[in-house]
Design a protein around this nucleic acid. Sequence first.
DNA 1: TATATTTGCTTAATCGATTAAGCAAATATA
DNA 2: TATATTTGCTTAATCGATTAAGCAAATATA
Lengths: 350, 350
Amino acid sequence: MLNRLSKYIKNLANKKRATLKDIANVLNISPAAVSKAMHDDSRISDKTKQAVKRVAKELNYQPNHIASALRKGKSNLVGVIVPRTNSNFFSSVLENMEAVLNKAGYNIIITQSNESFEKECKNIDTLLYSQVDGIIASMANETVDLSHYEKIKANGIPLILFDRGENDLNVDYVGINDYDSSHVIVKHLVDKGCKRIAHIGGYRRTRIFNNRIRGYVDALKTNNLPIDDTLIVESSLRLEDGRREMEHLLKLKNRPDAVYVASDYAALGALQVLNENDINVPKDIRLVGFGNEPFTSLVTPSISSIEQHSKDIGRLAAETFLKHIAQPEIKQTLNKIILDAELIIRDSST
Amino acid sequence: MLNRLSKYIKNLANKKRATLKDIANVLNISPAAVSKAMHDDSRISDKTKQAVKRVAKELNYQPNHIASALRKGKSNLVGVIVPRTNSNFFSSVLENMEAVLNKAGYNIIITQSNESFEKECKNIDTLLYSQVDGIIASMANETVDLSHYEKIKANGIPLILFDRGENDLNVDYVGINDYDSSHVIVKHLVDKGCKRIAHIGGYRRTRIFNNRIRGYVDALKTNNLPIDDTLIVESSLRLEDGRREMEHLLKLKNRPDAVYVASDYAALGALQVLNENDINVPKDIRLVGFGNEPFTSLVTPSISSIEQHSKDIGRLAAETFLKHIAQPEIKQTLNKIILDAELIIRDSST
DNA sequence: TATATTTGCTTAATCGATTAAGCAAATATA
DNA sequence: TATATTTGCTTAATCGATTAAGCAAATATA
């Protein structure tokens, strides 16, 4: 046996990787016995187990996950689709998602849609080809047609959405409460004595921005404030959109005394315009952003913002996937996990 | 044949996924012929190809990449290891890397080391188990021992390092020229009339920070400026480190007239201290950071910084991998691609 | 017309790991 | 001592796709 072993070790340089069969040959037993020994099957003797493990180490054996995936019909891969990774929110979600899934023996394949419907379709195809055991996704802004997501459901693997979801799909969802966030912000500003609160929002056709606008309008009603359509604007919420809309709001006869911006980037643009016009923030106009991007605490004055709990969202989305895997009999139904948003109050609104 | 087809379509609900065999059964030909037809083999008639493709569509056939990977000994997966995704630099690298690899039919598995040596070892094991066709990595700060990277080379798959590399490994590397970057920065500050240039750097034990310090010292010599050890400090380069070291520099009898900080976060901390002490930037003290983080253009005054060409690094690392795959006969040798760093001049140093 | 070549497939093995079924030897139980 | 059970393996099939080898029919060439 020692001869066989040393022969095999010599061949290591030539051979690619050791397989179960190689170990079996060294020990003169069947590959089936080796497989069982590696998995500590109770019907294999301790003596054999020890021998197998020793030889496995000696040959630097590494199991071929692809072969095992094919046989078991399980790849231990989870596909993830995000609009982009180049954002603090999404990269933080991914980080925590990965941590949870890794612990459970899963790896993730990350793909980006770049907010494009077409790319999103391609990503789904790619992930299905790769035989992923499930898909966790946040929808692109462009996406309206949902047939490609139905394809995932038709494949019989779990689909979990986060942040950007869609009720019609009837799948699990993890996200924050956009509607309530607006209430928290408006209440905070009212408490500070604000009476004319403007809202620089996103486009209503995107669910999350629509919810923020609805929340804003309802919160004004709740606080007995009039609704003034000139104080509600829709935009793409980039930095320059924030600048343009803030300049516009400053030209109004009756200026607002607070601005709630639905994105931190646009909020920063608004802040730049306010600073340039020597308008004191927060004394003259109070400002609140959304997303708690790192720079909100770095600029002067620091910007109050909504923390989206990216860590929890990543963790919960991963755990939801694992729950489905553990109990495959449970049919996928609409099961929403909505996290309470948290307002981080900084200098711009104190 | 129509009967067979409709039978199969009916079974779709029960059956998981259609396979080559299913298509073969419908058309009453062999699975081998179906495989060849799908790949447009010249020895298959057009009639059969059309029939196969029609039935494939009808049955919603999706090739099982795992089976094909096992047979072909090629997973079309590339493993990537980054210290973290939660950084503008790394997420941008990943984005561009993915774009190039996707086009070539590869998917990427992203793992994070969190700057931990132990996690990095685990990541490598995971990726090797997954039978990746290659690994692209940026080393954790903690990593000194390189045996786990040798394991990748022993496996016979290409290894490409970027940003954080190591000469001893003798593998391809893509990164910027840290040493030259320091020269560019020092020259810029000298051109602006600065005579006492301080350097808040990282720890010398990390290769890239060591290179930046060496570059700074040599550039001072080149410009006939004296080297003053009180103006060189090493730190972890977080925001609070920048604050502390800047406060320290301000207490010197002979204050610097410029500060070159080896990270944007520390540079921001330094800027905050300067602003708080009513020191005019750039008039009294000029400031330059490193990394071109998005916030450098957002703060007041905006911070000059070094663009690390994350897009190019991602693209080049991916292309280097593809080159190795295309020409497997080429032995892996030390092949460095060093990009010229670009100084983005902003208000803090004009 | 006789032979050579091409076309269009089939057959059978393979990539590694896993598992149901089964068998002989060892041990336990009646 | 005779039968039942347990232990420790082996045999053989399987997961889907791919491919080398081969064969018969069709077509081309001499």
